[in-house]
Design a binder for these strands. Sequence first.
DNA 1: TCACCTCTGAAAGATATTTTCGGTTCGGTG
DNA 2: CACCGAACCGAAAATATCTTTCAGAGGTGA
Lengths: 301, 301
Amino acid sequence: MTKDAKESFGGPVGSLAAKVRTLAPSMTRSMQRVAEAVASDPAGCAALTVTGLAELTGTSEATVVRTARLLGYPGYRDLRLALAGLAAQQQSGRAPAITTDIAVDDPIADVVAKLAYEEQQTLADTAAGLDTGQLDAAVTALAGARRTDVYGIGASGLVAQDLTQKLLRIGLIAHAHSDPHLAVTNAVQLRSGDVAIAITHSGSTGDVIEPLRAAFERGATTVAITGRPDSPVTQYADHVLTTSTSRETELRPAAMSSRTSQLLVVDCLFVGVAQRTYETAAPSLAASYEALAHRHRSNSR
Amino acid sequence: MTKDAKESFGGPVGSLAAKVRTLAPSMTRSMQRVAEAVASDPAGCAALTVTGLAELTGTSEATVVRTARLLGYPGYRDLRLALAGLAAQQQSGRAPAITTDIAVDDPIADVVAKLAYEEQQTLADTAAGLDTGQLDAAVTALAGARRTDVYGIGASGLVAQDLTQKLLRIGLIAHAHSDPHLAVTNAVQLRSGDVAIAITHSGSTGDVIEPLRAAFERGATTVAITGRPDSPVTQYADHVLTTSTSRETELRPAAMSSRTSQLLVVDCLFVGVAQRTYETAAPSLAASYEALAHRHRSNSR
DNA sequence: TCACCTCTGAAAGATATTTTCGGTTCGGTG
DNA sequence: CACCGAACCGAAAATATCTTTCAGAGGTGA
């Protein structure tokens, strides 16, 4: 794990709300109360001391400090500074637009607007929360891999296929697996120099963890793309790429935003690899484009 | 307890530099040193404790506190918070300068920022360009369909599968086809009251047009999701949903933004249908969620 | 039910901030 | 030139704030 002790305030302040959401599931109840208070009213919390915030949230100082730590700050003092920064930004910044959930009786135009807005938000959060060091390491591994396996199930399976399709287009050898048995069967064929990527939002999908583990134990370089950086899947991951989590509503399943987030990460991987292997990637891209050209138009009539 | 801190941080932070200038004459030499340090590098000073700043300026803690008081803050702590806010504002001021294409030698952080930005752009364009009338009609057709077929090839095939997965989760009967022959075979089974959806960015993919045409001729309600509203596929489409097209660059194939755009449209369709069939959709969603729960290892809180 | 484990807050311990207080400097004055 | 007073300054005490420790509460699975 690359530890960037350089950065003073624990990362771009804009990402705090996103961080709270991603980490909320791994928090205890009291910590969640603190995190929520902090996320919902940064300015107000910045004005409070540990003791004050502890009282406000009905918890103890210890819990407040623990929460600050979990959010990536050395202690409450630094969290407080970050909050002050965030508050200042918010005040000077723009007014947040549509924040309400999608309702059953929303007209279709509102649905479009809200969905677009939320997905944009998801993208911003993901970009802010992505560890570029980990990303860079993953790209390096991919660019030099003999072969690459990608594991994903359900909605994540589609993302896995998307990545595979892209990698194939620039001349890499990649396979996506959504059948758990076949995935494991393939995983044990991997060895040092190969890459295995597991995509799972929850980080706890056994069917995806198993093949990654097999690959990990075989010495392959393993990457996890997950919304839960502390989940089981990361045990077997050399590099962890975190996707963002937005709150799930009845009409908008979590799968929707996690998919958006995962795809952005996958795109970043792809472009990164394409950069690294530009000499071979550019001709490959052109070639695959050519090969498909006649499929359009010509037999359309 | 009582939240009195309305105007918390001693006035508008932007005025700090000005205040330093105004008050400088009435300051003693040591205090001027502190004030100057603070004004010239707010971010740096925000990272220092009272002792640190005293050392940096070659003065004492007492002097630092006196300076903070003179500047209008209750003590150093509050000055520090104001500095953090100021620093954040400054930083956010010089952010939005990413309009250029992704270059081969862009650092990975830029790649992330640019990709996120472009996808956000794509979403906004798509939402703006979507014909809600057509969308509404498509939703109505879907909600009342006996069965639904979705055709898509390549990257669009994944979008087709995504839509299918979602519809299945709310109890509808839907199939995705990426094999052209099977697609046609299935299409001829459709009849009035059924729905066929073709997803193709170019609108000219023969392998997708053929099944849509078959369905169209059988009397099914047909929908085209395409980036080219004047393309061949729309001949056989009762409803056309237009996705946005952003310019393609060497490292960023068109497939990337078209996919983002298509997915937004698909999400809108899904939510629209879920609204219409809320009575049955809500329980179905809950049921599929339940059914999957045990597949995740129980580390969840 | 019981053993075990995690979560939690009270209080002790460590830091940071504020205040106090005495020494120093400097300009004026006898 | 010696003395005085006032402002200035910083060391260290006093206070406030933050962090850590530890033992009990509460929940979980066998």
